[in-house]
Nucleic acid binder design. Structure first.
Lengths: 300, 300
DNA sequence: TTGCTGTATTTTATAAATAAAAAACAGTTG
DNA sequence: CAACTGTTTTTTATTTATAAAATACAGCAA
């Protein structure tokens, strides 16, 4: 099972090179130098050379000194079958791990082993380890040396602290947004978003699961208007925790989202009317609802 | 050079066990069961067994079935020499890496290799890798697959965003502190801290490098009064970045700290007088000074 | 010079092997 | 049956080996 040690970068380069040739060259044309190709496709020259060598073997081009002359157009046979190539390790682990969580196989307090994860997700322990270290910044898992990883229990203090920061950040974003000049493009975008919310609220019966997208969009807009990498990173945590807990309790999802859309509408509406105080109150109410509903779900 | 693969946990347990015996037992006493010992010293029973076996070899105790009888008191010869045991890998890497940074060997924009770091710090690439991943949450390093790590360049936007959050958090901490009941112990602690600042300000000529400790203490106090893990983590970043940049420019350190102490005094003083507005203004001023001085140093 | 090729060296990613430690299992005894 | 011991199985930590890719070096030609 040496699949993962295969020369991915090489194969991918060959494929892009073939495509590139088909699109931009014809027989008898000559290709740019190694260095140019390496820069163009963001790989090292070593890889370019190997790929060119390979194309020579395929009788697609001939190389003599500095010139690479195209002698035949590539066809579909020449491409590497990339479909069977599994995704990047990191993605594999992540997907598998999140699936476990979403299916409730890993609940707060549970322990799990790196080795097991590696086997199940068809990756190496190293990949697993690196993912878990990265993931641990969400504050949902922890480990002691020589001992297994453990899902942290999710106590009320955690939720309170999380929402305390969220409150702080969103109020801050709000106050920044309000100060945007009248002719800023973001006001238009906010208006569009208001309409999107309005539309969704009309067909809430069927499309209630479309809300998270809008929620994401609203946050994205506020972030673009006044970017801050720390706020952004924090929001990753928020939205993960959010998913983490709602994934296995969809019971009240429609009601939850219906309410949330209404609160968003209220909030955005007040903003559009430049009613800062009103918007702040609406936001406050929204955050409180969200916090409470998270608690209700998580602390059963 | 198999040093690092040695049985650290085992040796440490033997030593603590010997100490424990000297302190609490005498010849002919019998020791508790494996399980009890394992729990008491937070190791697995496997390790306890190996340690007990080892003590038997040393003729310190005899085991027959369930009873472990002490037959001789341990002496200093029996202890493992723990001094030659290098610290935990993680610490080693961390120290070496931070030293590099502090000596200006790694400046923004520089690249460095895991292998090199592993060699220099006398650890494995795995340990290095794990440290770097963990460290990357500070946002000071980054890497692309198959490529080396790189010190991020430290632009003005980063400082602005950092201080934007700091501003938000510290104002929040302030407003929380002000709301503490009159008889809260924290007011007393704040008062003590005020006096400490006052004392330091008198001998600033010589003890100016004592300021960071007080700064840390002030933050610690605010955090204890109203704990929030996210704020805390963020402050780690702040203080790291702070060190990262001042370490190689101590030129104006005394003036910087003298000013900072004055600003702290102003700030704490206003708090003690319950002058919320005044304290907020003082804090604002302090943060601006800090930000500006960081920029002056970092953006040379 | 500059920009290229060919070759050699380094480094990262990955696998496989193994020691140390933890955890699970199976009896035994009071 | 509860608590223990002796034994076996798993798991983590660490090292070593190697393929893939990136980088550095040396020399050549315009």
């Amino acid at each position: 099972m040496l699949v993962s040690r295969k020369n991915f970068v090489f194969q991918k380069l060959v494929n892009t090179l073939l495509e590139h040739i088909i699109k931009n060259y014809k027989v008898d044309d000559s290709l740019p130098s190694d260095v140019v190709l390496a820069n163009q496709f963001s790989v090292s020259r070593t890889t370019v050379r190997k790929a060119v060598e390979y194309l020579e073997e395929l009788d697609i081009l001939v190389k003599s000194g500095a010139t690479k002359t195209l002698i035949a157009m590539p066809n579909s046979e020449h491409f590497f079958d990339v479909s069977k190539q599994s995704k990047p390790k990191e993605k594999l682990v992540e997907e598998y791990f999140l699936t476990l969580i979403q299916h409730g196989k890993l609940k707060p307090g549970d322990k799990f082993s790196e080795l097991e994860l590696a086997r199940q997700s068809d990756t190496s322990t190293v990949a697993v380890r690196e993912f878990l270290i990265r993931f641990s910044r969400f504050g949902l898992i922890e480990k002691n040396p020589r001992s297994q990883w453990k899902m942290k229990k999710f106590d009320e203090a955690f939720v309170d602290q999380l929402y305390e920061i969220r409150h702080l950040f969103e109020m801050h974003s709000l106050s920044n947004f309000i100060q945007l000049p009248e002719d800023s493009e973001y006001w238009q975008q906010l208006n569009d978003l208001f309409i999107e919310h309005k539309n969704l609220s009309l067909k809430m019966e069927t499309c209630y699961d479309d809300f998270p997208r809008l929620d994401q969009k609203l946050h994205g807009l506020l972030q673009r208007a006044h970017p801050n990498q720390f706020v952004n990173e924090f929001y990753d945590i928020i939205s993960f925790v959010f998913h983490y807990h709602y994934q296995w309790d969809r019971s009240a999802e429609r009601e939850r989202n219906t309410l949330a859309v209404q609160e968003h509408l209220d909030f955005i509406g007040k903003m559009l009317m430049k009613d800062y105080r009103g918007a702040a109150v609406a936001l406050e109410r929204h955050l409180n609802t969200a916090k409470q509903s998270l608690k209700d779900t998580a602390m059963l």
